[in-house]
Nucleic acid binder design. Structure first.
Lengths: 215, 215
DNA sequence: CGGCATCCGTGACGATACTG
DNA sequence: CAGTATCGTCACGGATGCCG
């Protein structure tokens, strides 16, 4: 069993459960929806499969993750968060909030994945109510995910949206540039880096809400 | 330098800075005010002085902690959080919030310190506005700290209060029993475990606000 | 190929002893 | 009191191999 702090303290209890290296990043990955072992591994560059196995087992024992076998045709296994673990969303949100101020611009040898940025931007953006209620599908490099804007906040999920009102296609580097404030949201007609379809003005509002969050 | 994730992700950035073992607990200790090396060590049972030194150095390099030499008579050195680090209060609060649900009751071999509970209770209690605005001094085992109730929330700090409106004396075990919901706040006249002085009804309200937070 | 166990080198951690 | 030095142990990262 893992090292525990043996302190009767809520903060220490949290660290007992998700304080080891990689644990919270696994939760980050699963916050966008269930994932398979291999997909988790490639969303966590450098983790090593044995550590991933160990962490998933530990999270399972603490009822934060369940291993579920997909029905018939897929014949695959996915890991997903339990309702218990959804309380961790607040912790991740607080971390994303503060981490935005540390973000700067991507380093040269640094991994960049659209899902990481989208998740953090979705939970930290303060003026989500300036974005029209709709479903926005985002295609960022190889990632496909979507954001539902409802009740003045965002619900991000992985995968394509069933009925997207708008589609946004861009590279992770471009999204990083927007988040860091380096790039104003340009007129998509004039800028080949961003392609919008469907509800174009809504999509532009979404990107504008993201602009400069990491400054 | 420590292991970093090399991910352009706000959450990973936070973990790069405070993700190692003990780091966040050091921040927890300092959230109640500046502390000396030895006091930090005894607030973090099991840490080992070399690790504490290493963590303090790392936190210093990231401008989260400053080492300050106290004026004349004290001739001592304290560590305190920088304004940058105060953003971490939100992270700790979110962790305390979720950790409360994991807390249960203290284990046999578990360390219990009043300051840990008071800090978490102070930042997570939802109905702080039911407590009269005042300064409450808490003496819990060997810890002395105080809470200012203002604007419907609590500001906890270590040490005695200059002008306490009320004083509460109890053991950490008793406070744990209240937090876990095992112990209703008793009439202090009838219960020798709790001693109240000054604004007794205000102090009772404070304890009632804490009751059952960890259930 | 996805999921996981195993082995190994390196580094982080925990405990204790020691110094200014 | 405020650390540094040392050392045994454990966790991590990377690679390999097994098995459905």
């Amino acid at each position: 069993m893992s090292r525990v702090y043996n302190q009767y303290c809520p903060v220490a209890r949290v660290l007992d459960v998700v304080g080891e290296r990689w644990s919270l990043l696994i939760v980050r990955e699963l916050l966008l929806g269930p994932r398979r072992f291999t997909d988790l591994a490639q969303g966590l560059p450098g983790i090593g499969t044995s550590v991933l196995t160990a962490r998933l087992k530990q999270l399972e024992q603490n009822d934060l993750v369940v291993k579920r076998t997909l029905p018939a045709p897929a014949a695959s296994v996915v890991y997903e968060l339990t309702p218990d673990a959804l309380g961790l969303a607040g912790v991740l949100a607080a971390m994303a909030d503060w981490g935005m101020t540390l973000l700067g611009r991507p380093g040269d040898d640094e991994h960049v994945q659209g899902r990481w940025l989208v998740l953090s931007l979705a939970v930290t953006t303060k003026d989500a109510q300036s974005v029209p209620e709709a479903t926005y599908e985002l295609r960022i490099d190889d990632d496909v995910l979507h954001i539902r804007a409802v009740d003045g906040h965002f619900q991000p999920s992985q995968g394509p949206a069933p009925n997207p009102d708008a589609t946004i296609t861009m590279s992770a580097a471009t999204l990083a540039a927007i988040a860091s404030g380096d790039l104003d949201v340009p007129d998509p007609q004039a800028d080949s880096r961003i392609a919008l379809h469907g509800n174009v003005t809504g999509a532009q509002r979404l990107l504008e809400a993201f602009r400069g969050s990491a400054s």
